[in-house]
Simulated scan of single mutants.
Amino acid sequence: MKTGIAIYLGLDNTFEENIQLIETAAKYGVQRIFTSLHIPETDKSSLKKQISEVLNIAKKNNMEVISDISPATLEILGIEKFNLSAFQFLGIQTLRLDYGYDAEQITKFSHNTKKIRIQLNASTITARLLMELMKLGANFANIDSLHNFYPREGTGISEETLVRKNSLLHKAGIRVGAFIPSQHRRRSPLKAGLPTLEMHRHNDVSLAARHLAAIGIDSIFIGDSLPSIEELETLSQIKENEIEVKAQLLSSDEFTRNLLSHTFTARVDEARDAVRAQESRSLLNGTCIKSANTKVRSYGSITLDNEDYLRYMGELQIIKMPQPADKRVNVVGKVLNNEEFLLNYIIPGKKFSFIFE
């Protein structure tokens, strides 16, 4: 899972704060920096003064810089005409073509010899544009994509839209990134967060990032101006190809607690009423699970079959259909209510694990 931050020169942060953000993010393994060079509220004089040094700091920390550009960017930077060499000289490795560029131009840029990658706007991508790029012979090995963020409340896209756009891009072999908001310092002028999905606007970094990972996003960026150290650390811990769900632990048994710390795989023969872990019974190693807390199993309950279930002892499930109490089944945990929607992504063959509060 690639991770990223956003730097907005000439906006909220001081020069020193931007440098500190880059260096702190690098310590937590963040590999990418997004910056926009055509935000209307930007202090253009500050941007011009700071851009070279900020990009040099990013280079020293081996971070890829993605610049969101439009034809207006050329005027801001004082570049007379579009010239990849000028962006390469600044230290920008990836150009996100926001608007104003057609399929022929994108195709031409994708074959550049300057080792500059091209990034498409994933939120506005269409099947028609992808077909045109294919017909024109675009170099898809040099193209990836990144969704928009949405500063105004109520304008973020839906999960359905994001999944549909991702499907188009993944079928073409193009990797996809998206934004989540920070709850620490939000970017001006609206300061309402910068998520791709509207449903993430008030979510913490952990839940929003784990949701994007569950959907299949390849790269996650914190869009706001100055994420906290805790948010950067949380982002660095997000796992790719694994659904992580926060839950309440309801067992004090040491063996049970250790067993629940493993990563599991959802069985491919999907049950109607529960997610069944493929590996749990094989982890017993001769340990006997005694009956305990055999209460009603509500939606999101995490259960472990005890010795009374004979050869099923050690069967771990997450309940999808409420079930009555059974003396053979221990309730050892409960998925947090606001995390229950993540169970929809634990499909057959998918890895999953628990984060206990």
Rank of each mutant, 00 (worst) to 15 (best):
K2G: 09
L9F: 07
L9N: 11
T14N: 12
E17I: 03
A25L: 07
G29W: 11
I33A: 04
K44L: 04
K44Q: 03
L47T: 02
Q50N: 06
Q50A: 05
S52C: 01
S52D: 13
V54H: 03
V54R: 07
K60S: 08
D68W: 13
I69F: 01
S70G: 12
S70Y: 03
E75G: 05
L77Q: 07
L77E: 11
E80A: 15
K81D: 10
G91L: 03
G91V: 10
L95A: 01
G100F: 12
E104H: 12
I106A: 12
K108M: 08
T113I: 06
I116A: 02
I116L: 10
R117V: 12
I118N: 07
Q119M: 13
N121P: 01
S123T: 09
T124D: 01
I125G: 06
T126R: 06
N139E: 07
N139H: 04
I143Q: 14
P151H: 14
R152Y: 11
E153R: 14
V163N: 07
R164H: 12
K165C: 09
L169H: 03
L169Y: 02
G173N: 04
A178T: 09
A178S: 15
P181S: 08
R185P: 03
P195W: 15
L197E: 09
E198N: 13
M199P: 08
H200W: 06
R201D: 11
H202N: 13
A209V: 05
R210F: 03
L212H: 10
D218I: 13
G223P: 07
P227M: 04
I229Q: 06
L232F: 09
K239R: 12
N241W: 07
A247M: 11
L250M: 15
F255T: 04
T256Q: 11
H262T: 01
T263I: 05
R267K: 10
R267M: 14
V268L: 07
R272H: 03
D273H: 05
Q278I: 08
E279F: 15
S280T: 08
L284V: 15
G286H: 14
G286F: 10
V296T: 12
N306M: 13
E307G: 01
E307M: 06
Y309C: 02
Y312R: 07
G314T: 07
Q317H: 13
Q317T: 04
I318H: 05
I319H: 07
D326N: 15
V332D: 00
G333N: 09
K334G: 00
L336R: 15
E339D: 13
Y345Q: 00
Y345E: 09
I346H: 01
F352P: 02
F354P: 00
F354R: 02
E357T: 14
